[in-house]
């Protein structure tokens, strides 16, 4: 990552008018430097105000830091510049999903899927969205994981669930980000590292064994819980998922982890 950032920085320094600022800002965003990424892309947009990809990257940065209004503005701008911009459609679908506007989310993702029919990530996101809508509508659609009877509460299913071994390797499950990319391995490796930190802190404070660790992040609610054999189970759900429901998702994931080990020992 730092090599890529260094190479793109050199490229941009050599030609400040180039479009290298776009991949550079995105690399900085992925490298958890949102402030620098934003400065780079906004400076680039001063020269290239009508570049849809640059607005797309700016929107992703805003989405990452939780500024959904600006993210929406940037993705809408990208769409005005390039009709049918896939990144913008996908992003606007994601934002609509976050605020619970599932019909708008489906419309954007469907448009994106029509323009990028081979993008498995968009297809997966669309399938999951339709399954969620089916649950909320109380229908018995074939793709619905568990249709809720009419008149009951809608139960949003988690975005994904992973079982990760003590070395941070995925044992089971799958997780995709809002662009539809499979991020199971990276999420597993990154977040299980937090477990050791938590165990140390709890030991120093005399609080005993950990039971759960949850994070409310900009694009997901994420929870970790201990599983047998030093493994960790991880659940990700849409941001804003009711904390009580999220806790139940995590408890069920733990039960599945126990079953997994019983079945594979």
């Amino acid at each position: 990552m730092s090599d890529e950032i260094g190479r793109l920085s050199d490229l941009l320094a050599g030609d400040p008018a180039s479009l290298a600022f776009i991949p550079l800002a995105d690399a900085l965003r992925r490298g958890s430097q949102p402030d620098v990424a934003l400065r780079v892309v906004l400076r680039g947009l001063e020269r290239h105000a009508y570049n849809a990809d640059a607005h797309d990257v700016a929107a992703r940065i805003y989405a990452d830091i939780g500024d959904r209004e600006r993210a929406k503005d940037e993705w809408e701008m990208a769409l005005k510049i390039t009709t049918g911009h896939v990144g913008a459609l996908r992003g606007l679908g994601f934002l609509a999903f976050q605020r619970g506007d599932l019909s708008t989310a489906e419309r954007h993702l469907r448009d994106a899927a029509e323009r990028a029919p081979h993008d498995a990530g968009i297809r997966t996101a669309l399938d999951r969205l339709r399954a969620t809508r089916a649950v909320e509508n109380g229908s018995n659609g074939a793709s619905a994981p568990a249709a809720a009877p009419r008149g009951t509460y809608a139960v949003a299913e988690p975005l994904g669930e992973l079982l990760i071994d003590a070395n941070g390797l995925v044992l089971a499950g799958e997780l995709r980000d809002h662009t539809g990319t499979d991020v199971s391995a990276s999420v597993g490796a990154e977040l299980t590292g937090v477990r050791a930190e938590a165990e140390q802190a709890l030991a120093r404070l005399g609080l005993g064994e950990w039971r759960a660790l949850s994070i409310d992040a900009a694009s997901a609610a994420v929870g970790l819980a201990p599983a047998p054999n030093g493994a960790v189970t991880l659940v990700a759900a849409a941001p804003g998922t009711a904390p009580g429901l999220f806790r139940r998702h995590l408890q069920r994931a733990r039960q599945r982890a126990v079953s997994f080990f019983e079945a594979t020992v």
């Binding site: 992925r30 490298g31 958890s32 949102p34 989405a63 990452d64 830091i65 939780g66 980000d177 991020v183 990276s186 999420v187 990154e190 977040l191 590292g193 937090v194 938590a198 802190a201 709890l202 005399g206 609080l207 005993g208 064994e209 950990w210 039971r211 759960a212 660790l213 949850s214 994070i215 409310d216 992040a217 900009a218 694009s219 997901a220 994420v222 990700a236």
Partner: peptide, 19 residues
């Protein structure tokens, strides 16, 4: 870790333990 994993900035972290 949340940012590197692509979940963006975190607003609340909650750790539950026995004690």
């Amino acid at each position: 870790a949340s940012e590197r994993a692509g979940f963006g900035a975190s607003s609340i972290m909650h750790v539950e333990a026995e004690g």
